[in-house]
Design a protein around this nucleic acid. Sequence first.
RNA 1: GUCCCAAUAGCUCAGCUGGAUAGAGCAACAGCCUUCUAAGCUGUAGGUCGUAGGUUCGAAUCCUACUUGGGACGCCA
Length: 556
Amino acid sequence: MNVLEQTEQKLKQEISEAVLKSGLASAEELPEIILEKPKDKSHGDFATNIAMQLARIAKKAPRQIADEIVKVINETEASIEKIEIAGPGFINFFMKNDLLEQIIPTILREQDNYGKSDAGKGKRIQVEFVSVNPTGDLHLGHARGAAYGDVLSSLLAAAGYNVEREYYINDAGSQIDKLGFSVEARYLQELGEDVEMPEDGYHGQVIIDMAKAIVAEDGNKWLEKSHEERFEYMKEYGLKASLRNIERDLKDFHVEFDNWFSERTLYEDDQIPNAVQQLKESGYIYEKDGATWFKTTEFGDDKDRVIIKQDGNYTYLTPDIAYHKNKLDRGFDKLINVWGSDHHGYVARMNAAIQALGYPADKLEVKIIQMVNLFEGGEKVRMSKRTGKAVSLRELMEEVGIDATRYFFVARSNDSQLDFDIDLARSQSNENPVYYVQYAHARICTMLSQAETRGFDVNGKFDFAELTSEKEQELLMKIGSFPQTVADAAEKHAPQRVTNYVFELASLLHSFYNAEKVLDADAPERTTARIALMKAVRITIANALNLIGVTAPEKM
RNA sequence: GUCCCAAUAGCUCAGCUGGAUAGAGCAACAGCCUUCUAAGCUGUAGGUCGUAGGUUCGAAUCCUACUUGGGACGCCA
């Protein structure tokens, strides 16, 4: 637990005791004490609305209640400097300054670990994301999900959860057969055969590249084989090549998985029929029109869903149910799926499956990633200029860079559509929030290296009392709240809170930088203290950027 | 028709568990480099929080209806 949290805990406790002591409410009636950090500094460091909340219980005016609480509160215990009652009945607390004193030493001690907490208590969470069909490569739509899933995982890990990142490979369905036919057609075309590309095949350039690679390796070897043999080889080749592409693109985007789960393994030991059997035993299965149905309406879905078609094949849903059963059987405390918005209609039936398998509905949480619209030169970019197809993750990385891409993707709530301005992401100016934040980090690094070359005491004991200016106090409060920000962002699955936070911290740093001089030979004591502050701010910015997978450059 | 998401300054967006005078950046206007990086800072101006009800001491925030934009509604995957 960090310094600010301890302070809050203590204060909350003293407020509760004061309420009980004044007889305003009994222990059972006592509402949860809510502390907030007022925006306006004249409202103190913390404020509580407890007096308003107690108005009905105590049947007294809020201001009078506040008065009675303030009279009996133990100011020394909670390190309170001053208390004021304001507005409709807010109690404002001004804390003793020395509480901030621990912040810098804590950060300097924890270094890379600063910001982590044990809020998640080691609970096992699995985050499944991207999971694109291995039939081509990753495009824009997948990139946002990749950034979101990866950062969410990092946040959960930092907040003390035991996190596993998983990619589900759809390598068993009919889409893989389609891939096989597509590669085969391109292969035969490469060899000059008069073959039509199937209408519903995959037309991307990657497929042609695969065909060319096969020709380069094997020449016309597969021309002579039977169609079955050739198709089988083409399918497997396409699958492996697609996966290689996807894995490479993701790795370059700094996204790595703990586990790549193959759909095929579900077929190997009857996991799908077993899952269906379990649903049947629970009474959620019936036969109609020659098909097998799953009663998802029992759990709030619009209509029941077919899981075994008239022709005896499974629908898309069936192996997915088995997959989720497999995940649940692995003992995770919680499953998170990151899906594109075009799959949201699928959420209800998956939730139904979870419950029908005997698990509580909140065991699985599906995060829907809304669409991304690309803009360049003020115009909406519909297709890639290079390929005429959807813009790929790789193109985006090459066009705007990894840092900016990742930052922009997680800077917005997953529930909101995202307008991605390529010009802005690429611009090296103050308009670009990524550069703004990175520049703050680089600025500090410059100061610190200058401090060393100019012979200032960079590791000395510093006197906290030297840090008295308003901007220094604001910086201290801000860096002190970082662990709480990380925990909140993890809890709410809201990476954008981290980008907001680090942007605000950078802003405070720039403001401080322009107002005060850090390295001042005429004031060595103050300089030592400010160097310590700068180190702490640098660590906090670097850790925040690291969480969202953005680099923290030392020079720009 | 049903379901999901969104709607806040001219533009792009924050706004935490309902809290005090709704905040940034860009664009506009006025300033700041002899000084640790001006990729920066300071100030001015800009708002019926989509509309209408409701809950509450208090609503941008919660509830209901509606409007607009986007998406989804297959024995496809």
